[in-house]
């Protein structure tokens, strides 16, 4: 287990909030089993959960692929959805395009992308309006 590479994939369904958090909790369990540093686990889980919730809240569907090797965890979240017109604007704290229903649940406060940035060693977001968004998160196990 210590030398191998691991790969996981999860489907995410837009609008299905009741399933949200499953990939994050699976990744957390796996990293714990691998004895990854607790702080790295906490940061990874926050970044992944926020990215997943963005797919649920904004996109039609998505795929999360997770790759773990001895040095790092690489998470790729690809969705089919409306895309982000202005990524710089979306990164601003408090800016959100979430619906009133989503906000009522306590999501959509415009803090998600900032949480992702704070909790990822490497964060890359690319998006095409009308097609979808790709988010890449990389966290290293040894800082």
């Amino acid at each position: 287990m210590s030398t191998g590479k691991m790969h996981f994939e999860y489907q995410v369904e837009g609008g299905n909030f009741s399933a949200a958090g499953f990939p994050s909790s699976q990744v957390k369990k796996t990293l714990k089993q691998l004895n990854v540093d607790g702080n790295v686990i906490r940061r990874t889980v926050v970044a992944l959960y926020e990215a997943e919730v963005n797919i649920v809240a904004h996109a039609y569907n998505g795929i999360i692929s997770v790759d773990i090797d001895t040095e790092k965890i690489t998470i790729l979240l690809k969705d089919e959805g409306p895309g982000i017109a202005d990524i710089k604007k979306a990164m601003e704290i408090g800016y959100s395009t979430a619906t009133p229903e989503v906000r009522e649940m306590g999501f959509g406060a415009g803090m998600g992308l900032s949480n992702m940035k704070t909790n990822a060693d490497h964060l890359n977001i690319t998006s095409e309006v009308g097609k979808g968004t790709i988010v890449e998160i990389i966290n290293y196990f040894h800082q």
Binding site: S18, G21, S24, G106
Partner: peptide, 15 residues
Amino acid sequence: TLQTHKNIMAIASLK
């Protein structure tokens, strides 16, 4: 909190 839905537990567990 006053939030009463399942996602509260997901966050509570992850954190």
